[in-house]
Design a binder for these strands. Structure first.
Lengths: 206, 206
DNA sequence: GATTGTGTCAACCTTAAGGATGATTAACCC
DNA sequence: GGGTTAATCATCCTTAAGGTTGACACAATC
């Protein structure tokens, strides 16, 4: 277990009490723990320890484990942003999307877990996700018109394939490692994978 | 929660005590519970209830929750079988593979979860998986030779993409549902999806 | 049909994990 | 600089969940 915070070192110029900083630390620690272990397996005390704070503060600021998860899980997925311009070619957008998960791997893993989970979906996150999908679908239709992928494939279904393929290094990390021998969350691997994915996409253009 | 077993109905011709039947019931119930909730969130008492037996029998037959999980998770993945003939075209094999998950959805979900999990992988399962991947990779190389997909893509990476894409209905069920409005685990959807996936693959052949 | 052993169960025990309580102290305000 | 409030912490409490124990009963064997 790698240290994330310097564990109570009231550094010279730093405030020793700072609610915003504390909340942010808990939030980040929670993303990491929930993302790597899932809600049920994550431990409140581990989150607190990783954040370098007392576990009671999780109740104080977020109303307990459940509240913390709800908040963390409803954060709009960062990988969703910035790629809604309709005129870039599919392969390029796809490459960016595949690399996007790299920016915040914890959140990406959390997103995948939350998506697999059953039970009532997080309402806040669900709506923004629906919104995102609408946008992506419109984009796909435009790119199909532009000839980026064959006319006889269903854009909805194709979008689903691409999303799954793009997240392979996060959703099938062990397979990825067994196949390539590399660490699938390393920057070099993700870059390489994204490039290959874009290459395949280009072969689909007419 | 849907009933799986007829709850203690010692039907006419049936034995009321049958260790094999009991073990099998627990095994199936465990696959379903572990597959849909994950190890940590699964409840031993829920598994027992689903199997229609007393929860103590899980300790009796499998040595507790952990032992049961180990056994269930090391069962060779059924979707891995039957597709190692090297001369069928990629698109056909891919279509079968995508449909394969349908046969035992519980196991497929469990497989995905286990693959995402961190910590020491299940040794028994890991070896057979490695074996499977070797075989699939050999197949991919052969099909690349045969021109089923472009020569400038890395077969390892491409295999990873295909596996992820093929399991999309199980790994991204909510996205799938939000996109298509259909139940992604329904037979009709999986068939449709597999067919579309094969179609895309055919477009890659030179 | 009595005996023995194995399959099954209900009730109890233990513990880990999340949450609550009250004390303590830094930061802000006058 | 004294007082007030908010932030932080150590300790205790509660409970859900997995495991254990001992009773009981079906079924195989003689």
């Amino acid at each position: 277990m790698s240290e994330t915070t310097p564990r109570r070192a009231p550094r010279p110029g730093e405030r020793q009490r700072d609610p915003e900083r504390t909340k942010a630390r808990i939030f980040e620690a929670a993303k990491a723990e929930f993302g790597s272990k899932g809600y049920a397996a994550a431990r409140v005390s581990d989150i607190a320890q990783r954040a370098g704070v007392n576990k009671q503060l999780i109740s104080y600021y977020f109303g307990g484990k459940e509240g913390l998860y709800a908040e963390v899980a409803s954060e709009p997925f960062a990988g969703f942003a910035a790629m809604t311009t309709t005129d870039r070619p599919l392969a390029d957008v796809l490459e960016d999307f595949a690399k996007g998960g790299l920016a915040d791997q914890d959140q990406a893993r959390l997103f995948l877990r939350e998506n697999m989970a059953e039970g009532a979906p997080n309402e806040a996150g669900a709506e923004s996700q629906r919104e995102f999908l609408r946008g992506q679908l419109a984009y796909m239709r435009a790119r199909q018109e532009a000839g980026d992928f064959p006319a006889d494939v269903d854009p909805k279904t194709f979008l689903l394939m691409l999303m799954a393929a793009a997240s392979a290094p996060m959703s099938l990390p062990r397979i990825a490692e067994a196949l390539t021998g590399e660490n699938p969350s390393s920057e070099s691997f993700v870059e390489y994978y994204a490039e290959q994915l874009a290459r395949v996409a280009r072969h689909l253009a007419g």
